[in-house]
Design a protein around this nucleic acid. Structure first.
Ligand SMILES: [Mn+2]
Ligand SMILES: [Mn+2]
Ligand SMILES: [Zn+2]
Ligand SMILES: [Zn+2]
Lengths: 159, 159
DNA sequence: ATTGATAATGAAAATCGTTTTCAATAAGGA
DNA sequence: TCCTTATTGAAAACGATTTTCATTATCAAT
């Protein structure tokens, strides 16, 4: 199952058409590229990768497509504070879902983790409940990022 | 104690000189302005406020000063995802310290909270310890932001 | 108080990621 | 196939931030 990841060929065609969007070469190329990467790619990263096979596809279309995909909930859009947005495929209910990030401040490596330790889930539930009571603030989403040093950079002497 | 907040007049003069920085009118004006606000101000917000009293101070200097202040640890620099950085005074060990944010996705109101609910700090520590064990990642800092609807916007019907 | 080295400044230009404009193209229902 | 119109790519525009550079102001040494 090369570029469909077991969901059937072009499983997102239905989603696209259902939203009134047309299925185009650039959109297929971008989605296919994303499905083959597990990295946190910037628009330009994606542009360059796609460009090797489809030199005609412009950066503008990359941005427009990423915007649509993010709004459709097919990709996540993150901001790690380096001035450029980063994108990654959601991959549906089977694959990677909501997750948090460990960001190495030395080498900029980013580690996803979904296998939350029990304490973390507990922390979130209690915190959200407490904040609802204290501020009457209804939480719908959260962003949690831990900054520090990855294994390799600790050995190198931290920088 | 009007513009010194009980730390003695110009308590940061020492910090500045200690870092080899000169004490200048723009720097005093910016720091004084920040000490009188409890908001999350953008560079341009700060520029406009400072500009009413000191029309000669340019936006470039605002950026340069904010950069220094952030590096010195006198102010926090945050990114709430609206494309512009936001700044707020740390206020030393007495006042506001490390805190988390509640961000209303409807009216963009931002609520600080430092009065963590019971166990929140404890749970965070345990989470960090767990992540250290699991990924051997040494956490030095974290960013936690909750998105949702503030009290007012819930009543208005949630956008 | 005066001097002098140089850090700091402001205006303008440059940069950089992203968005908008617009004429040309291509998707897909008829 | 034909036609409507969503989509496209190039170029220009955009907005926040940074850089450049000539001028000014700070402050340690006189
Ligand atoms: Mn991720
Ligand atoms: Mn805050
Ligand atoms: Zn690292
Ligand atoms: Zn609100």
């Amino acid at each position: 199952m090369p570029m469909s990841r077991g969901f059937g060929p072009m499983w997102w065609h239905g989603r696209f058409r259902g939203c009134g969007y047309r299925v185009t070469v650039p959109r297929e190329a971008i989605l296919d590229m994303l499905s083959k990467s597990d990295k946190h790619l910037s628009a330009e990263d994606i542009y360059m990768k796609v460009h090797t096979r489809y030199p005609a596809i412009g950066l503008t279309t990359i941005y427009r497509t990423l915007d649509i995909l993010a709004n459709m909930g097919l990709i996540f859009k993150f901001d790690f504070g380096d001035g450029r947005a980063r994108y990654e495929l959601v991959e549906g209910p089977k694959g990677k879902m909501h997750h948090h990030h460990l960001i190495c401040t030395s080498c900029n490596r980013i580690i996803d983790y979904t296998d939350f330790i029990d304490d973390e889930v507990e922390l979130l539930k209690r915190t959200e409940k407490g904040l609802l009571k204290k501020y009457n603030f209804k939480i719908t989403n959260h962003l949690i990022q831990f900054y520090g040093l990855c294994e390799k950079c600790q050995k190198k002497g931290g920088d």
